[in-house]
Write a protein that binds this DNA or RNA. Structure first.
Lengths: 191, 191
DNA sequence: AATGATAGTGACATAAGTGTTACCTACTCG
DNA sequence: CGAGTAGGTAACACTTATGTCACTATCATT
């Protein structure tokens, strides 16, 4: 060891997330992050060679957390209980979706670390897809999900629903309950 | 008149949209747009003083088009017909949502034109909200929408559904039909 | 053909982000 | 205590975008 760091990795990633959400991928700069951490820009280069490396490292961190939580749905018995659980989890990780959408904007890098990171991100994505696919399969086996709706639409809808802006102060519980209700049985009164 | 322009306004806005979607607000540069139009960067400054002015002008153009189409729902009788129409329209203008979300990133400008544009955008937003609110009200009057679901959730869900990525080649008609089905009666089989 | 008006260009000064590095600082351990 | 090590800073050279401007190009009108 030696001198103590002025920031933890958690704190760093928290600020990376903030800057990414506020300025987008192309508006993300080391300057922004350094300022929020109250350190000099140069200090960041001790740990990350460039933008891509920092951002992909961050994405892996987020993806790892999210995936661990999502796997929790497998501890529930029955599709409906899993459904409720999944909605909760996606709600907690609602930013993940937007952030991972920036993965497309990553520049082609020659940096070895970045290439590895990209590859790992790809694996995570595959794992996520598998888990969700199993989830959908189960819903079909249990005859809960409507047969004629295509898989990718079902998944897309669930994930997308989470990003509905909740500007007005609706309580989280009430919000999730309503979204859950709409996903299950729609917004129309049964006639 | 004098010399003929090398690009139409429609063409310009088409490229502005493309660059905004590809690079995001902060990644948007006059250089990108000029390159796509095959003119020099300087030429653009003949018409727009800066980024803000060009982007807000573009947003007004998009918002105006979208609003005209959305007003068409009022030509339909009955809530359910309006519902179908609205879904079609939002689908056609699916990019509008992402693009307008960039309005938050606009820098505070001292430019008079930009201030006017922002103000007009605000009016458009208000109009849009009013139209959709009337639409929801109607759904409630006709006892079609479930009473207990909050207004902003209903609107949010409808708008958000449109952004579901359709990577796989599902036909537009089938796609809209499925989304329509889910919004109305959910993805669960009636037990 | 000359004029005027608008379209477009290329170069310049400026501003902001990048990546590197010499140097300073704080802490630990023998 | 002092030597080693890791954290942090600030300045430098470089790159890319910005906004401006003098200049050239094209066309309609007279």
């Amino acid at each position: 060891m030696a001198r103590e760091r002025k920031f933890t990795t958690d704190r760093l990633f928290q600020e990376v997330k903030h800057v990414l959400l506020e300025h987008g991928y192309e508006g993300f700069t080391f300057g922004h992050v350094a300022e929020r951490l109250d350190i000099s820009r140069g200090a960041l280069y001790k740990y990350y060679e460039n933008k891509e490396e920092l951002i992909t490292d961050f994405m892996i961190y987020e993806m790892d957390n999210a995936l661990q939580d999502i796997r929790m749905i497998e501890t529930h018995r029955g599709f409906e209980a899993q459904f409720d659980c999944l909605l909760e989890v996606i709600f907690e990780h609602s930013m993940m979706h937007q952030i991972l959408s920036m993965a497309h904007q990553l520049k082609g890098s020659s940096n070895q670390k970045v290439l590895e990171n990209k590859s790992r991100l790809h694996e995570f994505h595959t794992s996520l897809y598998q888990i969700l696919q199993q989830f959908i399969d189960r819903g079909r086996q249990e005859k809960v999900l409507k047969e004629h709706l295509p898989d990718e639409l079902l998944l897309g809808v669930i994930i997308q629903m989470i990003n509905i802006p909740n500007h007005v102060g609706v309580q989280k519980e009430a919000w999730i309950r309503s979204v859950n209700e709409i996903l299950r049985h729609g917004m129309f009164e049964k006639n």
